[in-house]
Design a protein around this nucleic acid. Sequence first.
DNA 1: GCAATAGTGTCTTTGAGACAATATTGC
DNA 2: GCAATATTGTCTCAAAGACACTATTGC
Lengths: 234, 234
Amino acid sequence: MPSSKIIAPYLHTIDAIVCRFNRERSRLEVLLNIRDKEPFKSLPALPGIVVNGDSMDDDLDSALNRLFTSRKVGLKPLYYEQVGTVGSKNRDPRGWSSSTFYLVIVDSNCSPLEGSYFEDFHKCVNSIVNLPFDHNDLCKKVNERLVSKSLYSNLPMMFLGKEVTFTDILDITSIVLGRDISKGSMGGRFKKMIDDGYLIDTNKVISKKGRPGHQLKINRTPSKIYLFDKSFNR
Amino acid sequence: MPSSKIIAPYLHTIDAIVCRFNRERSRLEVLLNIRDKEPFKSLPALPGIVVNGDSMDDDLDSALNRLFTSRKVGLKPLYYEQVGTVGSKNRDPRGWSSSTFYLVIVDSNCSPLEGSYFEDFHKCVNSIVNLPFDHNDLCKKVNERLVSKSLYSNLPMMFLGKEVTFTDILDITSIVLGRDISKGSMGGRFKKMIDDGYLIDTNKVISKKGRPGHQLKINRTPSKIYLFDKSFNR
DNA sequence: GCAATAGTGTCTTTGAGACAATATTGC
DNA sequence: GCAATATTGTCTCAAAGACACTATTGC
């Protein structure tokens, strides 16, 4: 099937669901971009790029990197993973298109570039904030992955910097899962990560309010995601 | 970015890793297809179709269905799920291409069409049987998904028909995970599925060798994949 | 009887989860 | 002292996993 037979207009894009943890407001946020081209010009949407356009990337990962370094994102990811690919004749008014979309996590303190801002992630997931294309759907699918994987891994910790406290981990896990996690449950996982050298207790203390907590360091070098063998309940 | 700007040759394919459980040989098998076109003409490869070609599908799912009903597969899936999408300039000699690939499970007793046959799946996963393109890689990624998901779900049961015995479940789970599963461990999950109405004990007995076992019926209507809250050990 | 397979029971260990009790800060 | 937060400990329960023991068939 030589490429000359490809006559129908077709777009393959990469879309990034770039999330961060807003500590002040205790919520997850997703990066939106004011579109400067049609369709949906001047509306906020998920940042994305075309894969089968003029730019010749080596592979999907380098295309993703092109998106990260572009002015649509311009942020360095702490973590990312591919979530899925959707494609249909209707999702883009320009014609048949596919989107391979990624969960991307960036630092809490990052600053969005001109033309971008962070929106309440769960409002996008639940279509309280309406996004063009099927971008609400993509947020929903990414959130499903985020929640299901957070039940049995330390994925929520990817939202935190290198220096964390036990409470930080408890907070972000509760926010991601949308329910309270008891200190006891989290404590077991916590201990395991310390034992396996994934978390290091610096024995320094950090004071916010009340009794100060231990300062912990995430040792990201040995592995990426830490998998537990038992899930939190749903 | 109008579609007229798309000048580079580009292929987006869907590839199916169609697996079945061969009871006689106690192994998983994957469907291979003798290619009747270049590149790699007359070599066996994973069945796949082009999405951005002449055929206009409604969406990826209907494209997948077109593949299922084509003479490359021609089998009715018991279960399928999207595993991922890869793309690079090198994976297909024709040029830049992406592949969205699926884990597909079919019945043990199905017969492959003319030009197709079933090969030992783990030989493809471990590159003991060499496949064109990056098809060995795709098998490997699918197997990783299959194994990791089988640790905490009843995914292995998708390889079985509606009428099963406890031993069938034990066997297919062991084969998928590549290690022995104790009757005790499996028994707990088994009981839970009975309690939740997912498995029904018909109280009929079926005799193979030795003491006959109870005939069980899988009640597929309520849900698809049954998730357990604790994993088998790795 | 014996081999083969099915099914049950007992014990250990791990980890979630609830909850109580104590410790250390700022005010 | 007191409010707020951190940390530790105790108990229960669910499920994996190891292993022993019994049950029911065909030969």
